[in-house]
């Protein structure tokens, strides 16, 4: 079984542990063993060290990366922001002078960044290491007939020059689409596929601007796809879709019911037959109906004799 360092970040272990649980449950049957990076901290998020000092950012990121380097493992993140922050920091660390300065800081906590671990997002691991065929083989339910709108999120797309693993065309991302289609579901295109959801710094700085942006994206999804659900590989996007749809609904700014939203590994865990009370338990939007449709007995894939 292939081992990989599981880098959890903040939102997933603290606010959305059902996502963590879904990751932990789906990987071993697909041949990947997640290894905990004991003591891993914040990536650090864009609004913290990166907003104050480049070297401190690189030091905190590099410390996280050394936790995997020590074990000879690559890193897999669940959160898009973590993927972006760690990848960019690693890119900055290619500059010899920066690496020396940061390693001097790390030396004080008896660590040294070597640059030997690659940074993956879990979507990359599933797409490139596990592969569509194996995902299909692991399904218990076939999601044929369900329509999914996908939200890849910004931080695994741009800037493509800092990512070791990436989309062929970041403006037409296909990794998450392929992963969702592997469950049998249909993934129609919508025009604002690449648009930002408005979570992050924007939401904490100016909620109204964030909601304005989010609404445009949401309406594009609803009008152009009439999807049954939204699936994302970004835990921040997940929170925006889950928190902000009810707000827009309550204000009367949208005239449709909020679309249930899943993190991708939650969807896959449900399709693999995992217990929803463990892998998809926490959300503002009621997901019970769509979960029941996903795990409907009629969708059970019959064993081929």
């Amino acid at each position: 079984m292939e081992k990989i360092g599981l880098y959890l970040g903040c939102n997933i272990p603290l606010k959305a542990p059902d996502i963590e649980q879904s990751i932990r449950q789906i990987l071993p049957p697909l041949g990947v063993e997640p290894v905990d990076l004991e003591g891993a901290a914040c990536c650090p998020a864009w609004g913290t060290a990166p907003s104050f000092d480049l070297d401190t950012w690189c030091a905190v990121s590099s410390r996280n990366i050394t936790l995997a380097e020590e074990q000879g493992l690559d890193i897999m993140t669940g959160c898009n922001s973590c993927f972006g922050v760690l990848s960019e920091a690693k890119h900055f660390m290619e500059d010899g002078e920066r690496r020396r300065t940061v390693n001097q800081k790390l030396a004080k906590i008896n660590r040294s960044f070597e640059g030997t671990s690659d940074i993956y997002h879990i979507a990359h691991v599933l797409h490139k290491k596990v592969g569509m065929e194996k995902i299909r083989e692991g399904l218990k339910f076939d999601l044929g007939g369900l329509k999914i709108a996908v939200q890849t999120g910004c931080h695994s797309l741009w800037p493509s020059d800092v990512y070791a693993v990436k989309e062929e065309n970041p403006y037409q991302p296909t990794i998450l689409k392929d992963l969702c289609e592997a469950t049998g579901a249909e993934v129609p295109h919508y025009s604002r596929l690449g648009a930002c959801c408005g979570m992050g710094g924007m939401r904490s700085t100016d909620m109204e601007k964030s909601l304005k942006l989010f609404k445009e994206k949401l309406v594009s999804i609803k009008e152009e796809t009439d999807a049954d659900m939204i699936v994302t590989t970004c835990s921040s996007c997940f929170l925006q879709f889950d928190m902000s749809q009810p707000i827009l609904r309550e204000r009367g700014e949208i005239d449709f019911e909020p679309l249930p939203t899943f993190y991708y590994t939650q969807l896959l865990a449900l399709a693999m037959g995992c217990d929803p009370s463990q892998v998809a338990a926490l959300s503002q939007i009621d997901r019970s109906a769509i979960i029941a449709r996903i795990q409907d007995e009629q969708r059970l894939i019959k064993e081929v004799a």
């Binding site: 959890l8 272990p13 649980q21 990076l37 914040c42 463990q278």
Partner: peptide, 21 residues
């Protein structure tokens, strides 16, 4: 950077209360 006490939620979904972070 984002911190809330996760113990109850983690217990609810069947994970150890303390995350390995």
């Amino acid at each position: 950077a984002v911190f809330t006490d996760p113990k109850e939620l983690r217990r609810q979904v069947g994970l150890p209360e303390v995350p390995p972070t």
